[in-house]
Simulated scan of single mutants.
Amino acid sequence: MRRFIISTLLAGCLSSCTSAPPSTPGDGHVEGPAPVAASCPTQKIAFTRDTGCVNDGSVEFCLPTGDEALLARVRDIAPAIQAGSSRGRARCDVPAETLYLFPTGDAECVARHGALEDAAWDQVCRIAALPEVREIVPTWYE
């Protein structure tokens, strides 16, 4: 009996000791079956992580106008987004859709006109994963 208990305890310890440690808040772990970046819908993003800051200070996307619950979800992902007032490069269907700009400044970019920081890329991926978002494109002012 003692041998059985020791074997069971040893097996339990080995399985818990070899599994990944639990995440802590703020460590970049996204709850769910897999990190969002691993399943990033890149087909909806008109740039890569490495070229994410090659723009005029933001990337943009459209959201349905008046969907406050959706806007709250997006602001939970990326609090710094700002509403625009035109169709933008994302070609929003105004007035049914509103243009939103995700900033690509010093906090989001490794370097000016360089790559997006990991956290910023994760935010872009999470926004792109929303079914209401058709595409995310670089902002270019003319």
Rank of each mutant, 00 (worst) to 15 (best):
M1R: 07
R2Q: 15
F4Y: 12
L9G: 15
L10T: 08
A11V: 15
G12A: 14
L14K: 10
S19D: 08
A20D: 09
S23E: 02
S23L: 02
G26C: 10
G26P: 10
G28H: 05
G28Y: 05
E31R: 15
E31T: 00
A37S: 13
S39F: 06
C40V: 04
C40R: 04
P41N: 01
Q43G: 14
K44Y: 12
K44Q: 09
A46S: 14
D50G: 04
G52Q: 02
G52L: 07
C53W: 08
C53R: 08
G57M: 08
S58E: 04
F61N: 05
F61M: 03
F61Q: 00
F61R: 12
T65S: 11
G66V: 07
A69S: 15
L70C: 13
R73Y: 07
R73T: 11
R75V: 06
A78V: 04
A78T: 01
P79Y: 06
A80E: 09
A80P: 05
A80G: 03
A80R: 14
I81F: 10
Q82F: 00
Q82K: 12
A83W: 04
G84D: 03
R87A: 14
R87S: 15
A90R: 05
D93M: 11
D93A: 09
D93W: 01
P95V: 09
P95K: 10
A96N: 14
Y100Q: 09
P103Y: 09
P103S: 06
T104A: 10
C109I: 00
R112Y: 12
R112N: 10
G114I: 04
G114K: 07
G114D: 02
G114N: 09
A115R: 11
A120I: 00
A120G: 07
D122V: 11
D122P: 00
Q123Y: 07
C125T: 07
R126H: 01
L130S: 02
P131N: 07
E132R: 07
V133F: 04
V133S: 00
R134G: 03
R134M: 09
I136H: 01
P138F: 13
T139L: 13
E142S: 04
